[in-house]
Simulated scan of single mutants.
Amino acid sequence: MATILGLTGGIASGKSTVSDMLLNKGYTVIDADLAARQVVEVGQPAYLAIVEEFGRSILNKEDDTINRAKLGDIVFHNEEMRKKLNGIVHPAVRGLMLSEKDQAIESGKNTIIMDIPLLFESELTWMVDRTIVVYVDSETQLSRLMKRNQFTEQEASSRIASQFPLKEKIGLADAVINNNGTIEETEEQLEKILNEWDLRP
């Protein structure tokens, strides 16, 4: 039986770094963010549903792709519209991820990583057997996000506030990787978890 591992964290917590480490070790990583981009490509069912709901003004003129910034502005300030968007995108993302998981199991993989930023917020723990949270303290999270996205402190704070606090996620996780230190320290913690749980690619 394959083990399905849920990897999560907060914005700018270093989850992608851990995800890359797992890929480099030969693990299959199914990325929710990547799936979310794939399901809204031009012509996909979710894309057509979004255009029908939000109108063509959210599209880029040159190639009809969805302008994520325009769509983001609409839903960031409107809870009802955000729910409508999530109602279209989330089921499509789940469907794609589950079919990729089934393919990985069929090809003989022992461990499959589901990289899901909003694993707890979206109540998707039913998709996985165990969970790992990548944690940083709030000061580090804020400064990394400001640096990475060129956000003001206010912009970064509001993005962080829209997610579960990382401290709460720790209490929900089966294992925690503290990513406040060096890359080497993070990798050591990951290795320890994989060994303790006897998880092979």
Rank of each mutant, 00 (worst) to 15 (best):
M1P: 08
A2I: 14
I4D: 06
L5E: 01
G6A: 07
K15S: 06
S16G: 12
T17Q: 06
V18C: 05
D20V: 06
G26A: 09
G26D: 05
Y27I: 11
T28C: 11
D31T: 07
A32L: 07
A32P: 01
R37P: 12
V39Y: 13
V39E: 14
A49K: 15
V51Y: 03
V51T: 04
E52P: 09
E53T: 15
G55F: 00
R56G: 07
S57Y: 11
I58P: 01
N60R: 12
K61P: 14
K61L: 13
D64A: 13
A69F: 06
K70E: 08
L71V: 05
F76E: 05
E79Q: 15
L85Q: 05
G87F: 06
I88M: 00
A92W: 09
V93A: 06
V93T: 07
M97N: 09
M97E: 10
S99G: 02
K101H: 08
K101Q: 13
D102H: 11
Q103T: 14
I105A: 10
G108I: 02
K109T: 14
N110I: 13
I116C: 06
F120W: 00
E121Y: 04
S122W: 07
E123I: 02
L124R: 08
T125W: 09
R130L: 12
T131N: 02
I132L: 02
I132R: 00
V134W: 08
Y135W: 14
D137G: 10
M146V: 01
R148V: 04
Q150G: 12
Q150S: 15
T152N: 01
Q154I: 07
A156T: 03
F164H: 12
L166P: 13
K167D: 15
I170H: 05
G171Q: 05
G171S: 07
G171V: 14
V176W: 01
N178L: 09
G181F: 01
I183L: 13
E184P: 02
E185C: 06
E188Q: 15
L190M: 05
L190Q: 02
I193N: 03
E196K: 10
L199C: 05
